[in-house]
Computed example of a mutant assay.
Amino acid sequence: MTVADATVPVARVFGSALRGHACLLVDEDGIVGLLPTAAWLRDATATDEAILGLCHGPTVDIGCGPGRMAQALALRGRPVLGIDVVPEAVRLGLGRGVAVLLRDVFDQVPGEGRWQTALLADGNIGIGGDPVALLARSREIIAPTGRVVVELAPPGTGVRTRHVCLETHVGRTGPFPWTLVGTDAIVAIAAAAALRVLSEHRYGDRYCAVLENAR
């Protein structure tokens, strides 16, 4: 299939990437780079574990992918549920022995309103291209005393939304919005979603923040 052919569903292209095929990330200006699927398919690293140390109590891993973060939480004895919209990701997560559901975060989530932590790792604050809407939805999923642990882009990134495509040997997706949120923008983005920043953290070249209910 060539780029000129009909676009391919995101779930099919991302699923092929999770089966080990190289996946290009493409935007309006051309190829941005390779999707780092190998990093997501491995076991959790020491840096992943440090980020997971910010998660308290039962945790829902939003956009869990193949389940490395959810698995690491489960190995700590933590109740955890992964949700993802890609069937291959769910299959791989279940293969790790993790509870994973094929579910859109904007659909009903089991235990909604009772989770102590909602995790948005690996840039998943970009899901849907609207970080305010995603954080507001995450606030609905957690308990009133819960928290959102969100991985961020480096300082100076601000808020950058672009339309991107994924491409593997099975073809290219149509463009879909994805947003980067830097550490310099999270206070304002969180406030717009009725959350506030409790703490910010840096682990090597990765940044994250812990958010709590502002009401």
Rank of each mutant, 00 (worst) to 15 (best):
T161A: 05
L195P: 00
R103D: 07
I31H: 06
F14G: 00
Q71P: 01
P36T: 08
V13E: 03
A194R: 15
A133K: 12
W115V: 00
V60R: 06
G171M: 11
V8S: 04
P66E: 01
R147S: 12
L18P: 00
A194D: 15
A17F: 10
A99Q: 15
T183F: 04
H201W: 15
I186Y: 00
L92V: 03
A185R: 01
V164I: 15
R19E: 15
E167S: 05
I127V: 09
D27Y: 10
A153K: 02
M69K: 00
L195C: 06
G20N: 12
V159G: 03
A153Q: 08
I125C: 04
G30R: 10
C55Q: 01
T145S: 13
I127D: 02
L81R: 07
L120H: 00
L54P: 01
G57I: 10
E140G: 11
L94T: 13
I125M: 04
T47G: 08
L198A: 14
A44E: 10
V10I: 14
L52D: 03
G33A: 10
I141A: 05
V10Q: 12
L54A: 14
R76G: 05
L18E: 04
H56C: 04
N124E: 09
G77P: 02
G174L: 08
A153R: 04
G65Q: 03
A44C: 11
Q108C: 00
Q108I: 04
V148M: 09
D107L: 05
P177C: 08
L198M: 07
Q108F: 11
V85P: 01
G126V: 03
A4P: 00
L54S: 13
R12M: 12
A194F: 10
G30K: 10
V197L: 05
T161F: 13
E200L: 10
A72L: 03
R78E: 07
E88R: 14
R68W: 06
A44H: 11
G33N: 13
V90H: 08
C23L: 04
G111M: 08
D205S: 13
E49Y: 01
R137I: 02
R91H: 14
G93A: 13
V159C: 07
R96I: 02
A89T: 06
H201L: 09
P58S: 14
A214H: 10
R137H: 04
G111C: 07
T161E: 13
V105S: 01
P58E: 14
D122K: 02
A193S: 12
A209M: 10
I186E: 00
R68T: 07
P66L: 01
P177R: 11
G126H: 03
L41K: 11
A6Q: 15
P9K: 07
R114D: 09
G123F: 03
P9C: 09
D48E: 09
H163Y: 15
L41A: 11
L73G: 03
R103C: 15
F106D: 07
T161V: 06
L75V: 07
T183M: 11
W178A: 02
P58Y: 05
I186W: 01
P110N: 11
P144I: 04
P110S: 09
A99W: 12
A44G: 11
L35R: 02
A214E: 11
P87D: 09
G156D: 08
C55H: 01
R202W: 08
G158Y: 12
P144N: 06
N213P: 05
T179K: 02
D29V: 05
R215M: 08
R172E: 05
A153M: 10
L119S: 01
M1P: 08
L92G: 02
E167D: 06
W40Q: 12
V159K: 00
